[in-house]
């Protein structure tokens, strides 16, 4: 499966990465180089193999009581905001 320029543009859009037009062809070539190497996974017989979804066997996801454990931290939450006002994040206009 080779990645064409149209796919690169589509994936960049999905990933919210502005890709200058002159970078599209080189990026396609780079990704194809990597994906071609990855294709060797097709040699592996994975018939009937359960996908591994956790690095630790047998550990059930722990549950905690559904109670509030923190809060009232708006100053700390906003401490690194590029723009903040009156206890809120200031972001570009979302709805026209």
């Amino acid at each position: 499966m080779s990645i064409d320029e149209k796919t690169v543009r589509k994936v960049a859009k999905l990933a919210r990465l502005a890709l200058p037009e002159e970078r599209v062809a080189p990026m396609a070539a780079e990704l194809n180089g990597i994906m071609a190497w990855i294709e060797q996974l097709n040699e592996v017989d994975v018939e009937g193999v359960e996908p591994m979804t956790s690095a630790v066997e047998g550990l059930a996801l722990p549950m905690r009581d559904d109670v509030v454990t923190d809060g009232g931290d708006s100053q700390r939450v906003l401490a690194n905001a590029p723009k903040a006002e009156d206890g809120f994040f200031v972001v570009p206009k979302v709805v026209e």
Binding site: M1, L41, V44, E50
Partner: peptide
Amino acid sequence: AYYLRAQKVRQR
């Protein structure tokens, strides 16, 4: 084709 297969290879 990719992610699921990779997780199966990971299991192997």
